[in-house]
């Protein structure tokens, strides 16, 4: 880990942290989704977020991804305030949501070509081929997205998120619907962008074992707050599981 450069050269002046959240709150009318999130993710770190359904995981990720505005609080992504300069944040983050974000009647290639143009990428076809190859999907270029299985759609969706070679990756339960082979692939490709640095990743998951195996840090989100935060290296699966039980009242 230490042998790899943690910072991309051009990001060094963008602050010490890849992701920073301070007292972030979000409410919808009378319903509070987030009740004061404090989060610091250093460059090159992999943060795994665990939490029951409705704990605010998705809301937190959507706020970091510029898809939602916090009701209050402060956010920095690569040192940039997304409320002031959302386009700059959007350019450097890759996002995998629950939905594949694909048009069913377009082919995989057309879908990715569309997104490549939305990101105004140079040499889009090269990038598309690279990303698809990394996920073992290179032979599906001409297939309509609608005809792909759920897992295959998920792979294309991850390829879509990696198209513009983002330095920060935000993923909301990416393993759901993926077969174990794809999950293995995911772990390799996620962390190794084209340059020699490590990607910063924030991932929510229900898969405790996998989340601990790939993560540097693990957090548990309960009732809209970060209730637990530890280095993955220092904890066992059993410990995290029992803490999770105590905090959320449900099992993993």
């Amino acid at each position: 880990m230490a042998a790899v450069t943690l910072l991309k050269p051009e990001t060094q002046d963008k602050g010490q942290l890849a992701v920073l959240a301070r007292d972030v709150r979000k409410s919808f009318g009378r319903v509070a989704a987030l009740r004061g999130i404090d989060l610091e993710v250093p460059w090159g770190q992999f943060l795994t977020i665990l939490g029951a359904n409705g704990s605010g995981k998705t809301t937190l990720l959507r706020i970091l991804a510029t898809l939602a505005r916090p009701t209050s609080g402060e956010i920095r992504v690569a040192g940039i305030d997304p409320l002031r300069n959302a386009p700059a944040v959007r350019r450097i983050i890759g996002v995998v949501t629950h939905q594949p974000l694909l048009y069913g009647d377009l082919t995989v290639g057309e879908n990715l070509a569309f997104y490549a143009r939305m990101y105004d990428l140079k040499r889009p076809h090269e990038k598309i081929a690279q990303c698809l190859a990394a996920l073992g999907m290179e032979r599906r270029l001409e297939v309509k997205a609608r005809t792909l299985s759920h897992g295959m759609q998920k792979r294309v969706s991850i390829a879509r998120a990696l198209l513009h070679d983002p330095i920060i990756l935000l993923m909301d339960e990416p393993e759901s619907g993926l077969d174990s082979e794809a999950v293995e692939m995911l772990e390799h490709t996620l962390r190794s962008p084209s340059s020699d640095s490590l990607r910063t990743v924030v991932m929510t998951t229900h898969n405790l074992e996998r989340g601990l195996a790939v993560g540097d840090q693990v957090a548990i989100l309960a009732d809209g707050r970060i209730a637990y935060l530890e280095q993955c290296a220092g904890v066992t699966v059993a410990e995290v599981r029992s803490t999770y039980m105590a905090l959320t009242g449900s099992t993993l």
Partner: peptide, 13 residues
């Protein structure tokens, strides 16, 4: 199709 987020995530104006 659930593709609104795809449009919104792009840095395009």
């Amino acid at each position: 199709q659930g593709t609104m987020d795809g449009l919104l995530l792009s840095p395009a104006g």
